[in-house]
Nucleic acid binder design. Structure first.
Lengths: 208, 208
DNA sequence: AAAAAATGACAGACCCGCCAGTTTTCCTTG
DNA sequence: CAAGGAAAACTGGCGGGTCTGTCATTTTTT
């Protein structure tokens, strides 16, 4: 029977959840392998039977949450490439949005860790920023596409993407950090409206 | 003569600039006092004649950039409290904006460090987040005030503030990290327009 | 020569990754 | 089904390394 396999998988998971809590509590850098092992209830040496080092642990941990998100991004791009009308592309955006929301809801701690460590130097930070910039590029392409179809006013896509991603980033981060503000779905709609109206081409309404 | 004093001040500055480069290059946590001292050309023991520890060094370093910004915030709040018409409050906002831009232009590295370390756990991160949330609160009040005067549509000020600050945050961060995009003044205007039109009350323009 | 500044060795504390020795699990065989 | 042995899993001490903050001593300034 796979009793051995099961135990191994379980212990791996124990180490990962222990690490997740410690990383969130004191940061990746400040957490020692000793602490992770102790928290998971094993000796230091045992850790090395499951992971090469702290970095491999982190990648496994956060990758479990990020990989699905990146996959969703890739799929959305593929769907958009073959989309013929705005109905189909709208569906692709819809699908992407719900995938991303689902990922965040499923791995809130890992995503929070992603936000926390993102700006740190070193290989971990670089790895996270690579993932991050994929989203930036996607949004930039989206803005560019909408601009070319005349649906929004002319604006530097790279600039708009940073603003949009930055706003969402901060909102999600605040929410994951424990700040409460209403129904996420309603918040999402507010974001769309906020940027939607800010991006649409229209005469400048001068409020005195 | 103040020769001694001068040298002391200069050495302090040397230590700070050395630390700034190292913090930006490898992060606060990964930088040792040994490295800072070596980079500044002094022995490790000398460091402790100028700063209590690494944390005091960081606070001094980043505080030099943040304090003026916080001061500008406090002054703007005071000016808004006594402002009677929207001309005066507009001037206060204008003044605040130019102060903040000036601070960023004067201490770009320190501000970048502020963005970098902001989400890390520990006393340093908490200290930075305290400063950060002052800006959040200010913007939230601003949105609330504009809403009460009917200049923008009804929207949760806390939510709008996070979106606005998040977008600006990301743009400034990208710019400080070396991403080029045109004239900062023009970018600022774009931000105002983006959010301005997104916040104004208006019939929902449904683009098919 | 007195005062101030600078130095670097030292003690104490962690941490990493390894690995020889121990314990647990599994499976075969009588 | 029990016994026993091989294999897998686990342990914790060790060597080697880094970092901190102090302080008696040396160097520089006045």
């Amino acid at each position: 029977m796979g009793r051995r396999e099961d135990n191994k998988a379980k212990k791996r998971a124990d180490l990962e959840t222990a690490a997740l809590q410690l990383f969130l509590g004191q940061g990746y850098h400040a957490t020692s392998i000793e602490q992770v092992a102790a928290e998971a209830g094993v000796a230091r040496g045992t850790f090395y039977l499951y992971f090469d080092d702290k970095e491999a642990l982190f990648r496994s941990l956060v990758g479990a949450a990020l990989d699905p998100a990146i996959d969703a991004l890739v799929e959305a791009r593929a769907a958009l490439d073959v989309a013929q009308d705005s109905l189909q592309s709208g569906a692709a955006y819809q699908e992407l949005g719900s995938s991303l929301v689902q990922t965040v809801m499923e791995y809130p701690e890992a995503i929070l860790l992603f936000y926390r460590e993102q700006r740190n130097p070193g290989p971990i930070g670089e790895w996270l920023r690579t993932r991050s910039s994929q989203l930036d590029s996607f949004v930039a392409d989206m803005v560019r596409s909408l601009g070319e179809r005349g649906l929004i006013r002319n604006i530097d896509p790279r600039f708009a993407a940073l603003a949009i991603v930055g706003a969402i980033d901060r909102l999600v981060y605040a929410w994951l950090s424990g700040n409460e503000f209403g129904d996420p779905a309603q918040v999402a709609q507010e974001v769309v409206r906020l940027f939607g109206e800010g991006l649409v081409d229209q005469p400048t309404t001068t409020a005195s």
